[in-house]
């Protein structure tokens, strides 16, 4: 896969379909690396769960893909663009366009209504107000929370808040949805509900990269599971009869 990379910045050719391509990515803060020499590819439409114990580097990997952090070495190619070479402004614009993010603790803005929370990424991207409202309304209805449009997040349940977060993540129709422990802060039933919702989105073609420490969640809602330990990929498994992918040889 490394050979396919267009190492310079910019989009890959239209023929290249790979959505995420990490090549020999290492992220070191102090001491031992948080992510060590990781190679990973994700195709459009995939639902990949990244698993591992606390401190294994799952969230760091997610942040590197989202452009929230920069690798110490290696390259991060997402939707054909070198995220690791982007500046802060470029990375922010890239996230608006290509990535939706959902978090364990929802990260909603408490002083904005549900609708304003969902609208925000579209407004930051400069989408016309009418179009943005239409998109937000459609998403809220699809996720079953349209009746809360003018409600503040503080009045919603955990599951409802996570639905708002998902709606916000999808408002700019990004090709990639990154989810960091999306069921970690809700009860089991709500977790099931959120999991099913993500699965439905994936069935509709949404690429999904899910970080979780729950094997159950990974097994039920991801087609593929990548296991991280101490920052290294120790396994990459395709679930439900799909052939297991071997970890690509390290250079």
């Amino acid at each position: 896969m490394t050979a396919d990379l267009n190492v310079g910045a910019g989009r890959e050719s239209a023929a290249a379909r790979t959505l995420i391509q990490l090549t020999a990515v290492t992220k070191r803060y102090q001491g031992a690396p948080a992510v060590n020499d990781v190679n990973l590819t994700v195709e459009p439409g995939d639902a990949v769960a990244v698993m591992g114990p606390s401190g294994s580097g799952k969230s760091t990997l997610l942040n590197l893909i989202a452009g929230l952090d920069r690798p110490t070495s290696g390259s991060v190619l997402v939707a054909g663009e070198r995220v690791d070479e982007m500046g802060e402004t470029g990375a922010a614009r890239f996230r608006r366009r290509e990535i939706g993010m959902i978090f364990q603790f929802f990260n909603l803005l408490e002083d904005l209504t549900v609708q304003d929370n969902v609208l925000l990424p579209a407004q930051l991207a400069g989408v016309r107000h009418r179009r943005a409202r239409a998109q937000a309304g459609e998403l809220l209805a699809r996720l079953g929370i349209d009746r809360y449009a003018n409600t503040y997040p503080g009045r919603l349940s955990g599951g409802e808040r996570q639905r708002v977060a998902i709606a916000r993540a999808l408002v700019n129709s990004p090709p990639l949805l990154l989810a960091d422990e999306p069921t970690g802060a809700v009860d089991t039933a709500t977790g099931e509900e959120i999991g099913r919702l993500l699965l439905d989105l994936n069935h509709e073609g949404q690429t999904l990269l899910l970080v979780t420490h729950s094997p159950d969640l990974a097994a039920r809602y991801a087609k593929r599971t990548v296991q991280l330990v101490d920052g290294e990929v120790i396994s990459d498994t395709v679930a439900a009869g799909r052939p297991e992918r071997a970890q690509e040889p390290r250079p």
Binding site: N107, L120, L124
Partner: peptide, 16 residues
């Protein structure tokens, strides 16, 4: 600071 993190995570640029 947490809200600022959210804004940036969902695409607010440094000039914004």
């Amino acid at each position: 600071v947490h809200d600022l993190g959210i804004f940036k995570a969902i695409g607010m640029t440094p000039p914004q």
